[in-house]
Amino acid sequence: MTDSPIAQSKQAHPNTPIGVFDSGLGGLRVLDRLMQTLPNERFVYLGDTLHMPYGEKTQSQVTAYFSDCLNWLVSAHQVKMVVVACNTAASVAPQLFGQFVGIPFVDPVTPICRWLATEGKYTTVGVMATPATVASNRYQILLDQLNAPINLSQVGCDNLASLIEAGKGHTPVCESLLRQYLRPLQDREAQAIVLGCTHYPYVLDQVAALSPNADILDPAAFMAVEAKRLLDAHQLAVPRTVERSVAEVDYFVTSEPQLFFETSRRMPFQALAMKPPAVVTIPVLSR
Rank of each mutant, 00 (worst) to 15 (best):
Trp115Asp: 14
Ser67Val: 10
Asn147Leu: 07
Ala90Gly: 11
Asn137Ser: 11
Ala190Thr: 15
Pro94Ser: 08
Val207Ile: 15
Gln59Ile: 11
Val127Gln: 01
Gln78Phe: 05
Val246Ala: 15
Leu50Ala: 15
Phe105Gln: 07
Leu152Lys: 07
Val203Gly: 09
Leu178Met: 12
Ser162Ile: 01
Asp32Trp: 01
Val207Asn: 02
Asn159Phe: 03
Ser9Leu: 06
Phe222Asn: 05
Pro14Glu: 11
Tyr65Pro: 02
Met52Thr: 10
Phe43Arg: 07
Cys86Glu: 09
Gln78Ile: 00
Met267Gly: 03
Leu163Val: 11
Val83Trp: 04
Ala12Val: 11
Gly26Met: 04
Tyr54Met: 11
His170Gly: 04
Ile103Phe: 04
Val134Met: 10
Leu146Ser: 06
Asp68Thr: 03
Met1His: 06
Cys69Asp: 14
Ala278Tyr: 03
Ala93Gln: 05
Ile282Lys: 09
Arg33Ser: 07
Arg229Asp: 12
Leu195Ala: 03
Asn87Ile: 02
Ser162His: 06
Ile150His: 05
Cys86Tyr: 01
Pro201Ala: 09
Arg229Leu: 09
Asn40His: 13
Glu41Cys: 09
Phe105Leu: 08
Ile6Trp: 07
Thr281Leu: 10
Gly55Cys: 10
Asn87Thr: 02
Asp107Phe: 04
Leu50His: 05
Tyr202Phe: 15
Phe260Met: 10
